[in-house]
Simulated assay, not measured.
Amino acid sequence: MANQTPESNQPSNTQTYGFPIYAADWIPEETVRSKIDKDQDNSEDVGGESSSSTSRSCIVLAGGGGEGRSGIKNVIVICRVDLDTKSLAEQPLGRIVLGTDLPYRMAVHPRGGGLVCALPNSCKRFDWESIISPREGDQGGEEGEEVINELKDVGQQLALAFNQEGSVLAAGGEDGTLRIFEWPCMKTLLDESKAHASVKNLTFSESGKFLVSLGGPLCRVWDVNASAAIASLSKEKDEMFAYCRFSVDNAGNEVLYIAANTERGGSIITWDTTTWKRRRSKLMKNYSISAFNVSADGKLLALGNMEGDVLIIDSTKMKTHQLVKKAHLGLVTALTFSPDSRCLVSVSFDSRAKLTVIEKTPEKRKGSKLAGDVVVVRVAIRGFLLFLDGKGDHRQRK
């Protein structure tokens, strides 16, 4: 349950949901729109809340206390986001309890095929309906949950990712095994037991042709169709690769970003996806990266750190666009941009979710136009005064 301070009856962009949050993502809203709208309409009838349907979005959060010794439940929750009031709902729209299994990582199917969560020894798929539907006694049943047989008893999976079409699922294990499957038939495309010492992050290219896996000292590039590694991306000096994300730059070219930590701070490395060579790197001094993501339009990068700060930078200039100091009380665990790139949700071990609205960059053209208009007015006034002076001289000569 979310908690607010007594004076915070007004909509808030920060909510505390009562469990350490490990994963967060936006839900492809069109796939669950009817159910969400129905639930929200009912809550408005009872509570008197109102919000236009166009402003409604939802996020899914996963986390908990682990094996249960802490008394904190392991849960998946769906929460409403109101873009009009720029706020997160205090009470979750849906909630499912998972017993002693901690949902450490998750992947949202991009075409409405539900949610895949990595549990300590296996992976499960959850229907949106099973999370949104009310349950008696605050308990989640097995209806709407499905253990994925191909990922059963395989140990902890530290990374999960769907390609953009939702036709391929990749899973990276703590034991270093990389598995790639066709979805939903789960036909094995790749099962590499020695991909890394431990797979920590995965990302599919925009086209779905490539998969990049990160773990140990290397990033490896895989051709999905050929089911083979085609390149290895090595670290330099004291770099420790932490996250990888594909995106598209302003020229429409696909790029790969790798977020790394060094003794001097965090570093963002940009790679060419044709030659698989480094393009450039940007060092953020004294900034330890604990979470990383890229906006859907490719214009912004988001970083979270150990101290709870959230940094948003321009991907072209690699300069700070927005800094949210102490967004959280501690380590930022995940960051996710809204599909329209207008907002960012950050989560943490502090049980908080925070919605940050992306500030708009002032348009220089408007400033230049205004300056030009001022010049034109000044010239016109000067000309008018000269005209008057000339007219006066003409009268005096007469």
Results as ranks from 00 to 15, higher is better:
Cys117Met: 05
Glu143Trp: 05
Asp138Ile: 11
Gly68Thr: 07
Thr85Ser: 13
Asp127Ile: 09
Arg69Thr: 07
Asp138Gln: 12
Pro103Ser: 01
Val108Lys: 04
Gln139Thr: 09
Gln139Ala: 06
Leu102Cys: 11
Glu143Ser: 05
Gln139Leu: 13
Glu142Leu: 11
Leu88Gln: 12
Gly144Trp: 01
Glu142Ala: 11
Ser70Asp: 15
Gln91Gly: 06
Arg135Asp: 01
Asn121Asp: 06
Trp128Gly: 00
Ile72Val: 13
Arg95Tyr: 11
Gly113Val: 11
Ser122Gly: 02
Asn74Leu: 00
Pro134Arg: 06
Lys86Cys: 00
Lys73Tyr: 15
Phe126Lys: 01
Gly114Ile: 08
Gly68Met: 01
Val75Thr: 06
Ala89Asp: 14
Lys86Tyr: 07
Arg95His: 15
Ser133Ala: 11
Val77Ser: 15
Ser122His: 06
Asp101Phe: 01
Val97Asn: 04
Lys86Pro: 02
Gly65Glu: 01
Pro110Trp: 02
Gly112Cys: 07
Gly99Leu: 04
Cys117Lys: 14
Tyr104Asp: 02
Arg111Ile: 15
Val77His: 13
Gly65Cys: 06
Ser87Tyr: 15
Val116Leu: 00
Gln91Met: 08
Asp127Ser: 14
Val81Gly: 12
Cys79Pro: 12
Ser130Gln: 02
Phe126Gly: 09
Gly137Leu: 05
Pro110Cys: 08
Glu143Gly: 06
Arg111Phe: 14
Asp84Gln: 09
Ile132Leu: 02
Val77Glu: 12
Gly68Glu: 08
Ala118Trp: 01
Gly99Ala: 14
Gly68Leu: 01
Val97Thr: 14
Asp82Leu: 02
Arg125Met: 15
Val75Ser: 12
Glu143Lys: 00
Val77Asn: 10
Asp127Thr: 03
Gly68His: 10
Leu119Gln: 06
Glu129Thr: 03
Tyr104Leu: 04
Glu90Ile: 15
Pro134His: 10
Met106Lys: 03
Arg105Asp: 05
Ile131Arg: 06
Ile72Pro: 02
Ile72His: 11
Leu115Val: 10
Ser70Trp: 08
Ser70Gly: 15
Val108Tyr: 02
Glu145Phe: 10
Leu119Met: 14
Leu115Phe: 15
Gly144Cys: 05
Gln91Ala: 10
Asp138Asn: 07
Arg95Glu: 13
Asn121Glu: 12
Ile131Asp: 03
Ala89Gln: 05
Thr100Pro: 09
Gly140Lys: 15
Ile131Val: 14
